[in-house]
Design a protein around this nucleic acid. Structure first.
Lengths: 104, 104
DNA sequence: ATGATACATCAATAATTATTGATCAATCAA
DNA sequence: TTGATTGATCAATAATTATTGATGTATCAT
């Protein structure tokens, strides 16, 4: 894994490294929702959620769609697929890296 | 995803959210290595790596095996499998959460 | 025993992230 | 137009993480 890919992976994982953000993703599994719905659901401040939604968006994990005065957020297929790639790479290494095992 | 699971996921993802730690995991894909080898490879301070190795270990992503005055680190199958579970759960949600789609 | 090596841990500091309470722009309803 | 609502963003602060250098504990070679 070269540097550039690693930077991207770190950003992705960082976005996933927070309980509030995992909670948000969980909610979005049910389909897109606006900030006000999420704020109501998580019972927390709006600016706090905006902050976390931005982190998720910057990482490519969610997508936003403005409509009127609402902003609807939803899971972003691409971001999640990216994530999957990173995991697969690690997974592939599991089989050959236990104690005293060598690969290639 | 309930709270307890989410906490664990956050810890796992946090461990993966740092370039140095991703670099370490990358090295360990080739098989177990001692701290001195990793320090030489990454060209950085020993206490710095000990810190990051501890984060990875606490997250269950790597395993350590003392031998003489060396400490050998290697990937931990379990931790990686845990990780996979979390990803799968997210992945499963991809198909039904795009804009204006609803699940269940 | 002495000295060197491998590594963990600690304390101090630096850097990064998160939270909170404004404020602002845009949209909409009356 | 006025006033209310949605949500982004900003500044200040708090909290968490990372880095560095120092110290301490084993282990090993001599």
């Amino acid at each position: 894994m070269w540097t550039k890919k690693r930077v991207k992976a770190a950003v992705l994982f960082h976005a996933l490294s927070d309980e509030t953000r995992l909670d948000l993703l969980d909610r979005l599994k049910r389909g897109e929702q606006c900030v006000c719905e999420l704020t109501e659901a998580l019972q927390t401040g709006q600016s706090r959620l905006s902050f976390h939604l931005r982190v998720l968006k910057d990482a490519g994990l969610i997508h936003d769609r403005p409509e009127g005065r609402w902003m609807y957020y939803s899971l972003n297929r691409e971001g999640l697929e990216n994530l999957e790639d990173f995991i697969d790479e690690l997974k592939r290494a599991i089989g050959c890296s236990g104690p005293s095992k060598q690969c290639e």
